[in-house]
Write a protein that binds this DNA or RNA. Sequence first.
DNA 1: AAAATAGTGTCTGTAAGACAATATAAC
DNA 2: GTTATATTGTCTTACAGACACTATTTT
Lengths: 259, 259
Amino acid sequence: MHDAAKVAAAMTKRARSDQEDDGEVPEGYDVSRFERPSVAVDVALLTVDEGALRTLLLRRDAAPYRGRWALPGGFVGMDEALDDAAARVIEQKTGIRRVFLEQLYTFGAPKRDPRTRVITVAHYALVDPARLAEAREETRVATLEVPWEGETGGPVDAIGADGRALPLAFDHADILGMAVKRVRGKLDYTPIGFQLLPERFTLAGLQRVHETVLGRPLNKDSFRRRMLASGQLEATGDLQTGVDHRPAELYRFARRSAV
Amino acid sequence: MHDAAKVAAAMTKRARSDQEDDGEVPEGYDVSRFERPSVAVDVALLTVDEGALRTLLLRRDAAPYRGRWALPGGFVGMDEALDDAAARVIEQKTGIRRVFLEQLYTFGAPKRDPRTRVITVAHYALVDPARLAEAREETRVATLEVPWEGETGGPVDAIGADGRALPLAFDHADILGMAVKRVRGKLDYTPIGFQLLPERFTLAGLQRVHETVLGRPLNKDSFRRRMLASGQLEATGDLQTGVDHRPAELYRFARRSAV
DNA sequence: AAAATAGTGTCTGTAAGACAATATAAC
DNA sequence: GTTATATTGTCTTACAGACACTATTTT
């Protein structure tokens, strides 16, 4: 018997003690006694393109930090789950649906927004660069420059197409830094890399993605062995085309099969 | 030159473009147009005692979930950082200060609190069991029963001193489950175990803590080698006392030295 | 054939697990 | 001395990194 079920059974057996209720809403209860902060979500939408880690930024056209660059974000609806808010924000700003999306960390320093208290539940998302088209004038895909190694952590810089750093709004350099740190950590033990690739890809392509995210070269032989041994790759039998050398086999990630 | 410094330098060089500001508060700006959720913190205060993973729970004496058991928690002050709120909650409920404390995950399902929208930034903390005395009648240290292996994740059960499951309020079984999952993950590559031990401890004691948290036995020889090779342990030269067999050497964790 | 990368086989070093032998305190 | 655990040493195995070699495509 599952333990959660055990708990439920135990409770029923006790014939619903009078000192306990099941969470019904008491009539007329008032919880609005406290002043409340605003709650937002921000999304670090990461991609790997041309050997660089990239992210989508929007130019702010209102105060505060007007003219600076910010992650797509927005306030959480009163009846909206946090993940749903993040997915909505992505779709509104880019039109992209169905991305890999995960909660990252909640940033709540009292003065992180100079206007008022805004607590933001930061998320990160991973997308195949082919899906990430620059939608609007005020949208830009910037290259991330990570000034630390491994999973040290810390803020990162966003570099525009002209090679100059884009000044970031709020604590978004920290959010991006934490997103990079998290993805690096996950890459070691999770099939997360394929979110950044088209459905079919070569082992060398997968290795390049890993190397770009991790910011360091990987051993080819070992990478190959590890990936094939993981059981998460499925050979398609087809070969790469359009390359001027021996074509590599195309793989796809195995669906999380019903084990 | 550090990259953050580079950014700053680049900005200065551009002589502060007119399309940009530095985040000053515009006069009379109104951000209170939206309805706002309440924001709380909850703390999973974990300890290891007598070979079991334990946590501190409080009996709710008000609706909702009156009579059920809940993590210590409270609303975040309008000018209070999230970590500070969590530390305050711990001190208010237990008197304990200066614990290892880290943000865990933010739970924000719209109906997780039946009264109104409450988003909670869950934290976890690790304490030496000697410091965790049961302070009040309505406070209890419960044993955690983890119905999954490794870092699978999922809710856990809290067992009272009488061996019966304590019914938990809200989504606190999920919060506790995520705390266990996180600590298990961290234990592999972070000096987190010593937070659960007195200052001086034996290698065998440390291994027991690791085994309790991980929920599986560890190889003694390998554990010993790994710990000593990590450079994080410092031999005190003193021996254990009061045992009826050969006493083991006492170690302490090396201060995070100024490398 | 030359160029370029894909893919295979083998060796070596490191670290974990297993097992055995020795050490030392309490009784 | 006996008991119980600490501590050290050695062997085996698994795997990552390194290197050399073969394969296959385009030009």
